[in-house]
Design a protein around this nucleic acid. Structure first.
Length: 737
DNA sequence: AATCCTGAGCTTTTT
DNA sequence: GCTCAGGATT
């Protein structure tokens, strides 16, 4: 016990040992948040205040959940009946899945319902639009998907949607139809997992009471990332502190809320504080990660945001080095500089894996990758396809889904002709019609067909039925193995000269199945029913997309967006592309509170660095096929001068003073990397970035960016109160002044 | 059924 | 400028 609490700082100790009450912990970056959460769970259990079964722990990613479980297992001595695994721990979606499987009847679902990931959902929507002959130009599938998810996250079934125009009325009809289709096919999308289980708990009082009494303590990680529905879900179980509900222990950081675009609602933190009458918010402000200068910069930046709960990071470590700033001539030049610095860091003994290259948007990785590649530096890019999202894996899963649930039309449509077996668009159209007439799934409608479609489709149905029969007794990994052969997927990729990697991935799927069974190990009962276990495995595949791209060697520099860097830390961080329009991103400037979210993103980026932070920007950069001239980011200006050291001489004082001179950095001999391209010659009619201009209607302004050339030449002008405008030089009469 | 071609989109991402 | 999806072409 004393072991458990040793080395906690006073605030951490306070949070860990807080008596039963609703609590909000504001945990700054690098303040030991996960440690507090896991230690609190261990403390609650070890002091006998609650049994593991009485704890519900919610995380945002499966990765976080696994890490927490692993740390907890080392904290709880086994054998005392304190099995960390009997804690209900997982993501909101994982927990909802568990709830819905257990009470599928009450929730109105078959036991073997399948889960659609976003891509599956989009495919389902496209299929629906096609069936209904809806013009997908008028109702773009992506928009509709977004609309439906937004409604579900607001807790609205179709009848509850506010209809304010004909367009929305039609969208609501499509929402209704989509729901019907999902129900028919026994599939559930991500938002549905949440809404269904929310409704289940809300409407079924005995069930709600049961869980309210079972869970004494609910602990929520990354609380600033919860959406409205998730918060309501928590409220249902906590019952706002009235008798019977659980105590909520929410940990989060409003300054690191960067997912508003996907529904996260920072306001939940304030609401929680108010609605649950949280009396003392605990702040974890001592940082164990970074040098003081880095924290000072982060604090200075985030101070520009209003509407914060308020927090300031500090450290017992010293100030460390100044932040290094580099102004590049263009994006390629920036990449060359990054590579040189990396080489120098590695020469000095830093591990490449401890170096991260961060950028605002994925498109920026290309130039960096190119430069790393030609310099022979191993690197690893995060993002892109994950294991269970790969084409070959999706195909294999589709066969498995058909075995578990033949009514899954999404899976049916995906593989009915893959590998190709002569089932073309015509046959499928005939089948679609039949399905509509008979009000059944595609699979179930096949027997109603005659002629050639009936024959080829009949063969496919028989194939699936044979698979189901032949795998009934097989352990999961062998089941998967069998399906890979029987479906013809293996043969197909074997004959494909570029199918080698895909074949390896298919084998990896067997491993994934084996690992899954091993994880489930303790649960003996599930093993008795291979096809029930299969459904669990499929849910696992949907809920956990798996690791990002395979690693390109272990000792590799890490490239990722700032978003994906959240929660990670590195000895050295390169924060590239610090330019207006890029970071903060131009789209965010128009959004309400968009700039504040960008600033939080900047805050997240800066606090990733332990030892050394590099900040860079380029005077010009290729974007959307055109050279763009950007100002350096306002966020750079928000860092106090004393904390930075310029490696290049600033092009001019202040921002927007034009394309100043380009200087070789005075330090380390810089290879005269490919003769720098000549200064851009742009016909801006004697105008340049930074110049004051006058416009007949908007008045005085300053040119902040320029793009295009000749007849297309455009400039962006900041007219102050009149706003930021893009103006075509050929049209707008701008007067230099 | 495979391959070529055109055009739209282009910030961030987990579940 | 690059990628991806879907349509048109062979």
């Amino acid at each position: 016990m004393s072991d458990l609490l040793a080395n906690l700082n006073p605030e951490q100790l306070l949070a860990v040992t807080l008596p039963p009450q609703h609590a909000l912990v504001l945990a700054g970056a690098g303040s030991g948040k996960t440690r507090v959460l896991t230690t609190r769970i261990a403390w609650l259990i070890q002091t006998g205040q609650v049994s593991p079964q009485g704890i519900l722990a919610v995380t945002f990613t499966n990765k976080a959940s696994r890490e927490m479980l692993a740390r907890l297992s080392t904290m709880l001595p086994a054998g005392l009946g304190h099995n960390a695994r009997s804690i209900w721990m997982g993501t909101f979606h994982g927990l909802c899945n568990r709830l819905l499987r257990t009470h599928h009847r009450e929730a109105g679902l078959p036991q073997l319902f399948q889960i659609l990931d976003s891509a599956d959902q989009l495919a389902a929507i496209k299929r629906m639009l096609k069936t209904l002959n809806v013009d997908d130009e008028k109702f773009p599938p992506r928009d509709l998907q977004h609309f439906i998810n937004a409604q579900k996250e607001a807790g609205h079934r179709p009848h509850a949607v506010d209809v304010w125009d004909d367009y929305t009325r039609r969208r609501v009809e499509l929402y209704t139809e989509y729901e019907a289709q999902c129900q028919r096919e026994s599939v559930v999308d991500f938002a549905e997992l949440l809404l269904r289980s929310y409704e289940l708990l809300e409407r079924n009082e005995p069930l709600r009471r049961h869980y309210q009494q079972r869970f004494r303590h609910i602990l929520v990680d990354e609380f600033q990332d919860t959406n409205r529905l998730q918060y309501r879900w928590l409220k249902l179980l906590a019952d706002e502190g009235r008798d019977g509900g659980a105590w909520l222990f929410c940990v989060g950081d409003d300054d690191q809320s960067i997912y508003r675009f996907r529904g996260a609602e920072v306001g939940n933190m304030r609401d929680f504080e108010r609605e649950f009458k949280v009396s003392n918010v605990i702040r974890l402000e001592q940082n164990y990660r970074s040098w003081g200068n880095i924290l000072d910069a982060a604090n200075a930046i985030i101070r520009h945001n209003t509407d914060r709960l308020g927090k300031s990071l500090w450290t017992e470590r010293g100030s460390g080095e100044p932040l290094r700033v580099f102004e590049a001539f263009n994006d390629g030049d920036e990449a060359r500089w990054v590579v040189e610095e990396i080489q120098s860091l590695v020469r000095d003994g830093m591990s490449r894996a401890d170096i991260a290259l961060l950028y605002r948007s994925n498109a920026q990785s290309r130039v960096l990758e190119h430069q790393l590649f030609s310099s022979g530096i191993p690197y690893r890019v995060y993002g892109g396809l994950r294991f269970f999202e790969r084409q070959e894996i999706k195909h294999a899963l589709a066969y498995l889904r058909l075995i578990a649930n033949p009514d899954d039309d999404t899976a049916f449509a995906r593989v009915v002709n893959f590998p190709t077996r002569g089932i073309g668009a015509r046959s499928l159209e005939v089948l679609q019609d039949a399905a509509r007439t008979w009000q059944g799934s595609l699979y179930a409608s096949v027997p109603h067909l005659a002629g050639k479609p009936g024959t080829v489709l009949g063969q496919f149905v028989r194939l699936i039925e044979d698979m189901r029969r032949d795998t009934r007794e097989l352990p999961l990994p062998e089941l998967v193995d069998h399906v890979l052969d029987a479906s013809g997927l293996r043969a197909h990729y074997k004959s494909d000269k570029e199918g080698q990697e895909r074949l390896e991935n298919l084998d990896e799927l067997i491993n994934a199945a084996a690992n899954f069974v091993a994880e489930m190990g303790a649960d003996g009962e599930a093993l008795a029913q291979p096809h029930a276990l299969l459904a669990d495995f499929l849910a696992h595949a949907s809920l956990e997309a798996g690791e990002h791209q395979a690693d390109a060697g272990t000792e590799a520099v890490q490239l990722m967006t700032v978003h994906s860097a959240k929660g990670l830390e590195f000895d050295a961080v390169f924060l590239t592309g610090l330019e207006e329009g890029l970071f903060p991103h131009e789209n965010s400037i128009l959004e309400r509170d968009g700039l504040e979210e960008e600033r939080r993103l900047m805050y997240v980026a800066v606090t990733r660095a332990r030892e050394r932070l590099y900040l860079s920007f380029a005077q010009s950069r290729m974007l959307h096929g055109q050279v763009r001239y950007n100002l350096r980011s306002r966020f750079l200006e928000e860092i106090p001068e004393g904390l930075t050291k310029w490696l290049s001489v600033p092009s001019a004082r202040g921002r927007g003073a034009g394309f100043g001179g380009y200087f070789e950095p005075s330090r380390s001999p810089r290879v005269a990397a490919a003769p720098s391209p000549a200064q851009p010659s742009r016909d801006l009619g004697g105008l340049r970035v930074g110049q004051q201009v006058k416009h007949a209607r908007f008045g005085q302004g300053v040119i902040v960016a320029a793009e295009g050339g000749g007849a297309d030449a455009r400039v962006q002008v900041n007219f102050g109160s009149a706003g930021l405008k893009w103006l075509l030089l050929a049209v707008a009469k701008l007067e230099a002044c």
